[in-house]
Write a protein that binds this DNA or RNA. Structure first.
Length: 137
DNA sequence: GCCAACGTTGGC
DNA sequence: GCCAACGTTGGC
């Protein structure tokens, strides 16, 4: 079981929309590191859903529901997607500010490599954030 | 809206 | 293979 973090601008695709739709294909990733992270995902892995630009906070937990497969929206290049389903929103969103100010979380890829849209999360980080979010899975 | 950080492209 | 130029992301 691995843990991840997925970024999306909420005015492009928000967590509440994922909850409403029940499932989405995580399309459009055009960065090799992010793509390789998706290729390392397994069905059942859990991921945080982070709202970039607007909110700048982790708002929910979702589950990876497929292995990586070819991105049908890519007209050229070797890109991948995974299917994602919602698990539950965080009772308390965990802001980037909170994460940066917490020594246990300040090494997260979210902080260290702010441009990476699909990043790994350690088990320790995952449960720390759940605790800050007052949420149990 | 600005700009720093980062990744990619292309000329040499 | 290096590096300057450019484009994009995302925090501020």
């Amino acid at each position: 079981m691995a843990y991840w973090l997925l970024k999306s601008e909420p005015d492009v695709y928000s967590f509440s929309r994922l909850e409403k739709e029940g499932r989405t294909m995580w399309e459009g990733v055009r960065n090799y590191q992010a793509r390789n992270n998706m290729r390392a995902m397994q069905p059942g892995d859990l991921a945080f859903f982070y709202h970039s630009n607007i909110g700048k906070e982790i708002v929910g937990v979702c589950r990876i529901d497929s292995e990586a497969y070819a991105d049908p929206t890519a007209d050229k290049g070797d890109w991948s997607v995974v299917d994602v389903v919602p698990v539950k929103p965080l009772q308390v969103p965990v802001s980037l500010k909170t994460i940066k100010s917490d020594p246990a979380l300040a090494d997260m890829a979210l902080v260290k490599n702010s441009r990476l849209s699909v990043s790994p999360v350690t088990e320790e980080e995952f449960f720390n954030i759940l605790r800050l979010g007052a949420t149990h899975i």
